Simulated assay, not measured.
Amino acid sequence: MRNAVRWLPALVWMTVIYCLSAQTGDDLGGWLHELQQLVPLMQGFDWGHFVSYFILALTYAWGLGGRRLTWRRKALVVVLCVIYGLTDEYHQSFVPGRSPDIIDIRNDAIGAALAMLFLTVPAVRRNYDRWTGAKYY
Rank of each mutant, 00 (worst) to 15 (best):
V121A: 13
T15R: 13
G25I: 04
G65E: 00
E34I: 07
V39N: 10
N3V: 12
L32G: 13
D129V: 04
T24I: 08
M14W: 00
M1F: 10
M116S: 06
D108K: 07
G111L: 15
W62D: 00
G66Y: 00
L32R: 14
D46G: 10
L56V: 02
H33F: 04
T87Y: 12
I110S: 01
A113M: 07
G85Y: 13
L41D: 12
V5Y: 11
L11N: 02
A123L: 11
R125Q: 06
I17L: 06
D27F: 07
L32H: 14
E89M: 05
C19G: 07
R106Y: 14
C19R: 15
F94S: 12
G29N: 12
M42S: 12
I17M: 01
K135T: 08
W131A: 04
R106D: 03
A22N: 10
E89R: 14
Y53S: 01
M14S: 06
G111Y: 12
G63S: 02
Y136H: 08
V39M: 06
R106T: 14
T24G: 09
G44L: 07
S93M: 08
M1Y: 11
R2L: 11
Q92C: 02
Y128F: 10
W47I: 09
M14K: 06
I103M: 14
A22S: 15
Y90I: 07
P100L: 11
V79S: 07
I83L: 10
V82A: 15
S93Y: 05
H33Y: 06
L20T: 11
L41A: 15
P9C: 07
T87M: 11
Y128R: 00
F45V: 14
